[in-house]
Amino acid sequence: MAFDSFGAFLAMEGHGPYVWASYGVFFVLMAVLMVGSYRRRNAVLQSCRQHAGSRSSRAPKPDSDTAPATAASFTRVDVSQD
């Protein structure tokens, strides 16, 4: 430990406000970014799930992977790179 007591750790010999303000901003912004990104991914995933659910209730799921979902959707075509 570089400090004698917890009080000394918080005070940082007068530099406490600077150090803790920096770490505070870092933690808050990183937490907002990480939690926000995670929630957004899950929300988008949820809306895709509902989309897929409404599709499958109207039309039975085709058993082949290559069958198009609906007439309006586009399918990806793998073009040979050679």
Binding site: R40, R41, S47, C48, A52, S56, D65, P68, S73, R76
Partner: peptide, 23 residues
């Protein structure tokens, strides 16, 4: 990874493979 997944889902939500994720 997380944010790219989000962007991919938004762009490809109508494709077969995304819907298959749930099926």
């Amino acid at each position: 990874c997380l944010r790219m997944q989000t962007e991919i889902l938004i762009r490809e939500q109508r494709t077969r493979w995304v819907q298959d994720l749930f099926h």
